[in-house]
């Protein structure tokens, strides 16, 4: 088979899923919710930037732009977008329109999840990226900062990963609870105290609030270290992981542990922020939430 034929055949196989993806994307971008969100998010970001133009350095100002996406209020919009497509209120339309056609359930969930993720990330990047470029490139009447390209990419990437996780959690809650309003309320009550819960397990490094606080440090981070530093960093990471795992297990099993002085989130001290650990934890959580929602959706009667 020649390459053109292969491309045509694979295109033919994926045609239903790309059609669902395109249809969902078009529907989302036509919706009042997404348009309003984009407009208000852009306006708010511009106001924040202009309001702190002469006061904050580059890194804190960019971190401030990320705050609405990580904590409040855009988190709520992301939840609503994630919850709706697989909830029970859409079951009839789904069954009558799409799932009675030659489409697999997991294929449908993947396509519609992809559309939500693309939309959320689209709004996020459209809002934040141009302002980041302006903040970094334009000379302002504040002391010079050292925001790096690597730091900017990794920070924006980690926030994108958090948003992807929130969409996946929305999918999971929508599939499990089936009522969109209930699912959204449950997610809000789960998400906001997450910092306290993670802190109890010495995992506050993974909370969105901590991520927002650590953003200024990460924005100034340099790409790569010399070999000696890298070995030391790996050893330190391994130690931290082991310590976190030990504390997590002891807390679950009820065994008392020696109280330790917090090393990571002392005010203004984020030197040992581990991008790899954060990405891994959010990535695994996203995969788990998505996998579970696919499993639940495939088991559900429509």
């Amino acid at each position: 088979m020649d390459s053109t034929a292969e491309v045509t055949a694979s295109g033919h196989v994926f045609m239903p899923y790309t059609a669902i993806l395109q249809h969902d994307l078009r529907t989302l971008w036509r919706s009042r919710l997404v348009r309003l969100w984009l407009a208000v998010a852009c306006l708010l970001s511009i106001l924040v930037t202009l309001g702190n133009w002469t006061q904050l350095q580059d890194a804190p100002l960019i971190a401030m732009l990320l705050f609405p996406f990580l904590i409040f209020p855009w988190f709520l919009v992301v939840i609503v977008l994630g919850v709706t497509p697989v909830s029970a209120t859409h079951t009839d339309t789904l069954a009558d329109g799409i799932l009675c056609r030659p489409v697999t359930r997991y294929g449908y969930v993947l396509a519609t999840w992809g559309a939500r993720v693309f939309t959320v990330l689209g709004v996020y990047l459209l809002t934040v990226l141009p302002l980041c470029a302006v903040i970094v490139l334009v000379k302002r009447p504040v002391p010079a900062d050292h925001v790096t390209f690597y730091g900017l990419v990794t920070t924006l990437g980690s926030v994108a990963l958090v948003l992807t996780l929130v969409v996946s959690l929305g999918f999971l809650a929508g599939t499990l609870l089936q009522k969109p309003l209930l699912a959204a309320v449950v997610l809000v009550f789960v998400w906001y105290p997450v910092n306290v819960v993670l802190s109890a397990f010495s995992l506050e490094e993974f909370s969105p609030i901590s991520l927002n606080q650590a953003a200024t440090t990460q924005l100034r981070a340099q790409w790569g270290l010399d070999p000696n530093d890298r070995t030391a960093a790996s050893a330190a990471e391994a130690q931290t992981l082991a310590r976190q795992a030990e504390k997590f297990v002891s807390l679950l099993s009820g065994t008392p542990t020696q109280p330790q002085k917090p090393e990571f989130f002392e005010p203004g001290k984020f030197e040992d922020f581990s991008l790899a650990r954060v990405m891994l934890s959010y990535g695994l959580a996203t995969l788990a939430a998505f996998g579970l929602s696919v499993f639940c959706f495939c088991r559900r009667d429509l």
Binding site: H12, M15, A19, I20, H23, G97, R101, P102
Partner: peptide
């Protein structure tokens, strides 16, 4: 047209 795509129709 959407349904046609779901049915793999070129």
């Amino acid at each position: 047209d959407l349904l046609g795509k779901l049915c793999h129709l070129p």
